[in-house]
Structures are given as C-alpha cells and as structure tokens.
C-alpha cells in the first residue's frame, strides 16, 4: 500500500468528541478512521489507472511531441491531490463516453489534461 504520497488527503482523526443522536461517544484519541483507508485505496486505484494511460505508446509520443519528458509527467502525477486526480479521471470518463479514448484525439486530450493538472501548461480556462 502506497502511503507516502498521501499529501492533501484528509487524514481523519477522531480525537474530537463525536456527538450522535442523544448520546455522546468519545473515540480514542489518535485513532485512524476508516475514511483514511477508503481515501488511500481510492487514490492508489486512480493512480494505477492513470499510470496505465501514461505507459501507452501513443500517449508517450504525444508528450514527446510537446517537448515533455514522460518520466517527469509520471512523477508529477504522483504529486496530484486527490481532488485533481478525481478531476483527471472524470475528464477521461467523459472522453470515453463521447467516443473512443484509444483514438488519436483521445490520446491528445488525455495528454493535455494531464499536463494541465501537473502544471506544465495552462490552456483550459475554468469558467
């Protein structure tokens, strides 16, 4: 399990007093909540899916064409926050729904989204 890059993930500690319906339940200080593990596992799965994409030849070729080292991009993807990773996956899902992600346009798009998120370029203006 990859924990080393859980930067930005919410580490949930129940060191506070939890107030439920009509009773007060104090969880032990320093307990690591289940949500932490859910986040960690979801992140690992997201990273694995993006890494599969990055390992594809057409994606690598597009990166090289744009003058970017695929190894550096792969490195930076690991530094994405959970929210950014989710955004990346969502964009890719939308592509899949719209057509063939294996097509050339799909590869270019995936590359641009990844580069945008890792901060290499800034072409997608958020409305």
């Amino acid at each position: 399990m990859e924990f080393s890059k859980l930067r930005g993930a919410v580490v949930r500690f129940a060191s506070v007093t939890l107030i439920g319906m009509g009773f007060v339940q104090a969880a032990p200080a320093a307990m690591i909540n289940t949500g932490y593990l859910v986040d960690a596992q979801a992140r690992a799965a997201s990273l694995a899916r993006v890494e599969v994409l990055l390992a594809r030849d057409d994606v690598k070729q597009q990166l090289v064409k744009l003058g970017v080292d695929p190894a550096i991009v792969a490195q930076r993807v690991k530094g994405l926050s959970n929210a950014e990773l989710m955004q990346l996956e969502q964009s890719m899902d939308e592509q899949k729904a719209g057509g063939d992600i294996l097509g050339l346009i799909g590869a270019v798009f995936v590359v641009l989204i990844i580069l945008e998120l890792v901060g290499v370029i800034d072409i997608f203006k958020k409305s």
């Binding site: 939890l18 107030i19 439920g20 007060v24 909540n33 289940t34 949500g35 859910v38 979801a42």
Partner: peptide
C-alpha cells in the same frame, strides 16, 4: 464500492456506531 464505503465511513464519523 468506494462510494458505498465512503458513505459508511461518514456514518461512523458521525458517531452512529
């Protein structure tokens, strides 16, 4: 699965043990 587990984890954190 992840969405479902997140939902349960939130219930846990809300103290609904």
């Amino acid at each position: 699965r992840t969405r479902y587990f997140n939902a349960i984890a939130a219930l846990e954190q809300a103290g609904q043990l």
